[in-house]
């Protein structure tokens, strides 16, 4: 690695050669990289979008198209075409009749091993969570990763109550309870053996819903149909 030694004994012409070689290779590298990037970018974007859309449709059963909205720093929902840069994103899903199915909300929090990133679907009409998917987790395989696989756990999210009270806040915060101890509609039936991971999911949903749901519920009328806002997100371009 160290080129320190014979430099002083080299003639000065060596330096120019070195310079030329380095810069030459640098330029060559840049060319190669840029060309590859330009060539692959469209396909990569498309694949990513597809993956996202797939996830959205998963948590919003019945949805066939989606639009992306942002949430700004003041906690207001903003349309995708505005200049304001969003703090986080919310996806609205529509069925084949262009009726709003619900919103897909991304949330994350500390799990057992590392951060867990999830996506859940919210139906403002029923005021329920209607779908759930883990986007990214490093939970222990066989234990913690049951939150992604165990059907009994996933069943919690077909109709999880996130109804609002009169003040416009979540009436009952979503929490995870011990396996088999679920009594109320707003409780998540936990997994024995994956207690921490299932609780983490509960906590993530709990805190995310407290923040986002009131906002979405207030605004859902405004976006009930995609026609209310003619300009479509690029996600919808198929």
């Amino acid at each position: 690695m160290s080129e320190t030694v014979n430099i002083a004994s080299q003639n000065p012409a060596g330096s120019t050669k070195m310079l030329k070689a380095m810069v030459g290779i640098g330029v060559l590298s840049a060319l190669l990289i840029v060309v590859t990037f330009e060539l692959t970018q469209p396909r990569v974007q498309q694949l990513k979008a597809e993956a996202l859309e797939k996830a959205i449709f998963e948590v919003l059963p019945g949805a066939v198209s989606s639009r992306t909205f942002g949430v700004n720093a003041e906690g207001k929902l903003i349309a995708p075409d505005t200049e304001e840069s969003p703090v986080s994103l919310v996806y609205a899903g529509y069925d084949s009749a262009d009726q709003l199915v619900g919103y897909a909300v991304e949330a994350s929090g500390q799990g057992y091993a590392d951060k867990i990133r999830i996506l859940y679907g919210y139906n403002p009409k029923q005021q329920q969570i209607i779908g759930f998917q883990v986007l990214e987790s490093k939970e222990t395989p066989g234990l913690g990763d049951k939150i992604e696989k165990e059907q009994r756990f996933l069943d919690n999210f077909t109709a999880l109550d996130v109804g609002l009270n009169k003040e416009g806040n979540i009436a009952n915060k979503v929490t995870t309870v011990k396996q088999g101890a679920k009594v109320n509609a707003w409780e998540i039936d936990g997994i024995t053996g994956a207690t921490i991971s299932s609780r983490a999911v509960g906590d993530i949903i709990g805190s995310s819903t407290e923040e986002v749901i009131p906002l979405l519920f207030d605004n859902y009328k405004m976006m009930e149909t995609p026609k209310a806002n003619p300009k479509k997100n690029e996600n919808d371009d198929k």
Binding site: M1, E3, G14, K17, M18, I25, G26, S29, I33
Partner: peptide
């Protein structure tokens, strides 16, 4: 030249890794 060999090689490798990545 010998003195910048490693640096150049790293450049070359990094280029192809980026290409592969995409």
């Amino acid at each position: 030249p010998k003195q910048v060999r490693i640096a150049s090689y790293i450049l070359i490798i990094a280029t192809f890794v980026t290409v592969t990545d995409y």
